[in-house]
Design a protein around this nucleic acid. Structure first.
Lengths: 197, 197
DNA sequence: CGAAAGAACTTGTCAATGACTAGATTCCGC
DNA sequence: GCGGAATCTAGTCATTGACAAGTTCTTTCG
């Protein structure tokens, strides 16, 4: 439909074609490389080849853009966690999600950057929360112990901490050339030292 | 020595007296309340009752201020972890540190905000790392399993994830009115289900 | 004691940014 | 093909970080 490439900077048409996606995509690149603090709406506009105020039409403001990213992230996480074959594998997928979508992950857990009451955000987050809870409650009660709530917090804390430290390059030294996912499996095997899945 | 209060906004003397501490302190308040992104050197200067360029004399720039905060944080963490009576208690202290110094904690693990090569930062971080390693290696090998490196990553991930989720208010719902530290103890008791300390 | 050296702070300036407003262009339903 | 809505442009303002140059206080040392 539009002759313009969604991320190219030259454009003959008045309408971009898919500016929303182009801005989101550029934002994810910037965040992954330099963090959310380096985000500049005007810079994103330049990358997309549009005027400095164009992004605001799609996201309202900087907070709106970040909120959209977080909501998208929770949706992706819910998809990744859905129908995980066991708690262990859910943890692995949580870590994999963080590695594949580092920008989303970072923004999702930076509440001070987000519009907390945003409907898309809260519903997406609730979905992801359900998927997590599902992964905990469906596991064999004999394996996870009597308290599902405690087990859920433990699993989430472990996966979240590992993912966070990984993204912050705090485990580089101890991991060496190992595959982070394999190491995470080994780690959970050690903790739940008779884990079935 | 100086008649001026270190955080008051009115000041008769040309010299503030302890501007460095005043700026650091105000910065910690802002970060704890609104995150590092809300930090403004000019705002901190206003709070301290000095001119807009005064803070730069002590910290060079925004990154310098955040780097100083991170370095201080790693120092405080090393102190908190030093001589912890066992791995479990070290974890509890890690979580306690995050709750008592949320701004430090947040900045310490945001590498994109810091001057990575800063000497004070790297040495302080190394000290804290030593304290953590110490806590892992001194624990009874029969309790932690054969692989100290894996055990260390597991313990750090668990404590770090729990602390992070706690600060992001992601555990509020499941914790209710419980004491977060007690819950963390219960959580570790469940995982290392015969933990001695 | 006093002067030089340096630390602590001020004032002025510039480019960049977020947010807002008003207006131009294109798209779409009828 | 017409009218309203969506998309994008252009202009503006207050705020900020960074830097340069000057002022005031403190300390050192001859």
């Amino acid at each position: 439909m539009s002759p313009s490439n969604s991320t190219s900077t030259d454009r003959r048409t008045y309408h971009h074609g898919d500016l929303r996606r182009a801005v989101l995509s550029a934002a994810l690149d910037v965040i992954a490389a330099e963090g959310p603090g380096a985000l500049s709406l005007r810079d994103l506009a330049r990358r997309a080849g549009v005027s400095h105020a164009a992004p605001a039409h799609h996201f309202k403001d900087r907070t709106g853009l970040l909120t959209a990213i977080a909501a998208e992230g929770f949706g992706l996480l819910a998809d990744a966690l859905r129908e995980a074959p066991g708690l262990r594998e859910a943890g692995v997928r949580y870590v994999r999600f963080a590695r594949e979508h580092p920008a989303h992950f970072q923004v999702m857990f930076s509440p001070e950057l987000l519009r907390a009451e945003d409907l898309e955000l809260t519903t997406a987050r609730a979905l992801a929360g359900d998927a997590l809870t599902q992964a905990v409650t469906t596991v064999d009660p004999g394996e996870r112990g009597p308290d599902a709530r405690l087990a859920g917090m433990a699993a989430w804390s472990l996966a979240h901490g590992y993912a966070t430290l990984l993204l912050g390059h705090n485990l580089d030294h101890q991991l060496g050339k190992e595959d982070p996912e394999d190491t995470f499996r080994a780690l959970t095997a050690m903790l739940f030292h008779s884990a079935a899945d």
